[in-house]
Simulated scan of single mutants.
Amino acid sequence: MADNEQTITIDGQSYNTTELSENAQNQVLNLRVTDQEIARLKQQLAIYQTARVAYARALSEELPKEKH
């Protein structure tokens, strides 16, 4: 583990993960994996939102223009 991965701060209190119980260490790992997955999903959402804007713009350009 890298040095910055050996501590975790929860509710303003820092803990050395190597001093935590095995169950607590597993929960820390679960939190880190979950945080990584949330970040990945946020990136995907940003990509999809950007694509949606592009598709909507392309559709708008293809629609018949109103004649006045």
Rank of each mutant, 00 (worst) to 15 (best):
A46Q: 11
T9G: 02
A56F: 08
V28F: 05
G12I: 07
D11N: 08
Q36I: 03
A51E: 15
L59T: 01
L41T: 05
T34Q: 10
R32M: 04
L20A: 04
V53Q: 13
K42S: 03
M1A: 11
A24I: 00
N26A: 10
A46I: 05
D35W: 00
S14L: 02
L59E: 09
E66R: 14
T7G: 05
Y15R: 05
G12S: 07
Q27N: 12
S14Q: 09
G12M: 08
N30K: 15
T17G: 04
E62R: 13
T18D: 05
Y48F: 14
L63F: 08
P64C: 03
R32G: 02
L29H: 04
R40E: 00
T9V: 12
E19K: 13
Q6C: 06
D3L: 12
Q44S: 02
Q49W: 04
L20G: 02
A24E: 08
Y48P: 05
G12L: 15
R52K: 14
N23T: 06
A56E: 13
I8L: 05
L20Q: 03
S21H: 03
R57G: 00
I47A: 10
S14I: 02
P64W: 08
D3E: 13
L45F: 11
T18S: 10
N4V: 10
Q6S: 01
Q6V: 00
N26M: 12
A24F: 08
K42A: 09
V53A: 15
Q36A: 13
G12A: 03
L63K: 14
Y55P: 00
S21G: 03
E19D: 07
L63H: 04
L29F: 10
Q36P: 06
Y55K: 14
Y48M: 14
L59C: 03
K67S: 12
Q36S: 09
A24V: 06
Y15F: 15
E37S: 01
